[in-house]
Amino acid sequence: MADAKVIPFDDDRSRQGGQRPGRRRPAAGRRTAEPGTQPVPGPTAPVSSLPGQQGATEHPSGGKDAASDAPNRTGTPSDGRVREATPSGADAGTAARAAARAEQGERGAQGERGERSGAGWEQRIAGGLSFLRRRITGEYDIDEFGYDEELTDQVLMSILRPFYEKYFRVEVKGVENIPAEGGALVVANHSGTLPLDGLMMQVAVHDHHPAGRHLRLLAADLVFMLPVVNELARKAGHTLACSEDAQALLERGEVVGVMPEGFKGIGKPFGERYKLQRFGRGGFVSTALKAGTPIVPCSIVGAEEIYPMIGNSKTLARLLGIPYFPLTPTFPWLGPAGLVPLPTKWTIQFGEPIATDGYPPEAAEDPMLMFNLTDQVREQIQHTLYKLLVQRRSVFF
């Protein structure tokens, strides 16, 4: 008759024996008991530690030892029937000590996390104070265009990032198409009544490019005529939209962004949304050819609907000296509240780069080549816009 297996009933005893929860401990040895006595619960000893108690042995006469009929320490008799057993006081004490150790370890882990959090806040405060000290003492660098990289990274991007991540919930695709090093010219469509699309594109390159590159945008003259906007634009790395500045930045290995539609794109009526306007005379292609840098087409979906332009007051535009005076469903009817953009869902996709380094130096003076390359870039952006619009589920989701 086969020996009965010991059925463990206390997880703490299993852990105490070095076994992981869920794994069965080896069967323990059995001790003989006097007739009429009840089994004494308690930890069982291995067979080798109880000499002379090796279990049931067969006698020559066919009988069995007394040990074969005696119940084992867990209350399992030799007939294989299982009796319910209760943990002893030693087991209860072990469980209590284990619970106390677990609670102490949890308190220690919480304290360690609190220390790390406190250290993180201390580092942030120290970094902020150091930043303010450099601002006050003038110990920071700007380039010849007025670009302040530290201020852009620490302050300006932090201001724009909540709009990028939470308000417009921008989805970026193909940002790895921008080269990891060297100059590149990013050409994008322009829309939205106010030029928020350029700022969101700048955040997309800054936060998502694998090499952590910075986008230097080319802006119109009007941007640098406004008192406060002028200074912020310079600090953020924007420069005048002229071929000389653009070529200088490209030859220095910068990523330059341009929106050739200009005011024709950003000020077009809502009924013409996502229909690209004329891309100028191809000046951006000539600049890329002279610098020998690739052209990266970029398509932006979602900006057209932030300020639906249903009209244009040309009289007010002439009085104010601006290209157009937009009339939207909320502006100017709601006053300053009408300047709040609608929370549309954006997608920014960077396309495959178009190489220009294979052309000879005199190619920048070939009008037919510039026309063909300009049309190629425009068609690629327009095709991507249509594709993204088909994939879009909703304007706001």
Score class of each variant (00 low, 15 high):
residue 173 K to F: 13
residue 6 V to R: 01
residue 61 S to Y: 07
residue 168 F to R: 14
residue 14 S to A: 10
residue 92 A to W: 04
residue 344 T to I: 10
residue 191 S to M: 10
residue 208 H to N: 04
residue 21 P to Q: 15
residue 329 P to Q: 09
residue 113 R to M: 02
residue 364 A to N: 02
residue 265 G to M: 06
residue 71 P to W: 15
residue 76 T to F: 13
residue 234 R to D: 02
residue 272 E to G: 03
residue 314 K to S: 11
residue 283 G to K: 01
residue 297 P to D: 05
residue 61 S to Q: 15
residue 65 D to Y: 13
residue 175 V to G: 01
residue 98 A to S: 10
residue 172 V to P: 00
residue 52 G to W: 11
residue 146 G to C: 06
residue 269 P to C: 14
residue 229 V to W: 04
residue 262 G to V: 05
residue 232 L to D: 01
residue 177 N to F: 12
residue 76 T to G: 01
residue 281 R to V: 05
residue 132 L to E: 12
residue 46 P to M: 15
residue 264 K to E: 15
residue 303 A to L: 06
residue 84 E to L: 03
residue 30 R to S: 01
residue 319 L to R: 09
residue 337 A to V: 12
residue 89 G to W: 15
residue 391 Q to A: 04
residue 81 R to F: 02
residue 140 Y to W: 08
residue 247 Q to W: 09
residue 239 T to N: 01
residue 346 W to T: 13
residue 143 D to P: 14
residue 222 L to Q: 10
residue 143 D to M: 07
residue 122 E to R: 09
residue 175 V to L: 15
residue 130 S to V: 07
residue 338 G to P: 00
residue 161 R to N: 05
residue 224 F to M: 05
residue 357 D to V: 07
residue 25 R to I: 04
residue 159 I to C: 09
residue 111 G to A: 11
residue 362 E to C: 14
residue 281 R to A: 10
residue 204 A to C: 04
residue 43 P to S: 12
residue 191 S to I: 08
residue 195 P to F: 06
residue 191 S to C: 07
residue 394 S to E: 13
residue 33 A to V: 05
residue 43 P to T: 11
residue 62 G to H: 14
residue 302 G to R: 00
residue 56 A to M: 11
residue 118 G to T: 12
residue 153 D to F: 13
residue 227 P to W: 08
residue 297 P to G: 10
residue 344 T to R: 04
residue 196 L to Q: 00
residue 165 E to D: 08
residue 385 L to I: 12
residue 288 A to K: 00
residue 356 T to Q: 02
residue 110 Q to K: 06
residue 305 E to A: 07
residue 291 A to Q: 00
residue 172 V to K: 15
residue 60 P to H: 07
residue 108 G to L: 03
residue 385 L to P: 00
residue 264 K to Y: 11
residue 310 I to V: 08
residue 325 F to R: 00
residue 135 R to M: 03
residue 390 V to L: 04
residue 226 L to Q: 05
residue 149 E to N: 15
residue 397 F to V: 14
residue 175 V to M: 05
residue 153 D to P: 07
residue 218 L to R: 00
residue 353 P to C: 12
residue 160 L to R: 13
residue 253 G to R: 08
residue 152 T to I: 12
residue 55 G to C: 08
residue 215 L to Q: 00
residue 94 T to Q: 06
residue 249 L to I: 14
residue 3 D to A: 03
residue 109 A to Q: 04
residue 29 G to M: 06
residue 207 D to P: 01
residue 25 R to D: 03
residue 351 G to K: 00
residue 128 G to T: 08
residue 30 R to K: 13
residue 26 P to I: 13
residue 310 I to G: 05
residue 104 Q to M: 13
residue 383 H to D: 12
residue 373 L to A: 04
residue 179 P to N: 15
residue 237 G to Y: 03
residue 231 E to N: 13
residue 345 K to H: 06
residue 295 I to W: 11
residue 76 T to R: 11
residue 3 D to N: 09
residue 232 L to Y: 07
residue 276 L to A: 12
residue 392 R to Y: 02
residue 254 E to N: 07
residue 55 G to V: 07
residue 47 V to M: 12
residue 111 G to K: 04
residue 329 P to M: 02
residue 308 P to N: 10
residue 102 A to K: 10
residue 34 E to K: 11
residue 123 Q to P: 04
residue 28 A to D: 13
residue 337 A to M: 12
residue 43 P to I: 11
residue 275 K to Q: 14
residue 59 H to P: 04
residue 66 A to S: 06
residue 68 S to W: 09
residue 232 L to E: 01
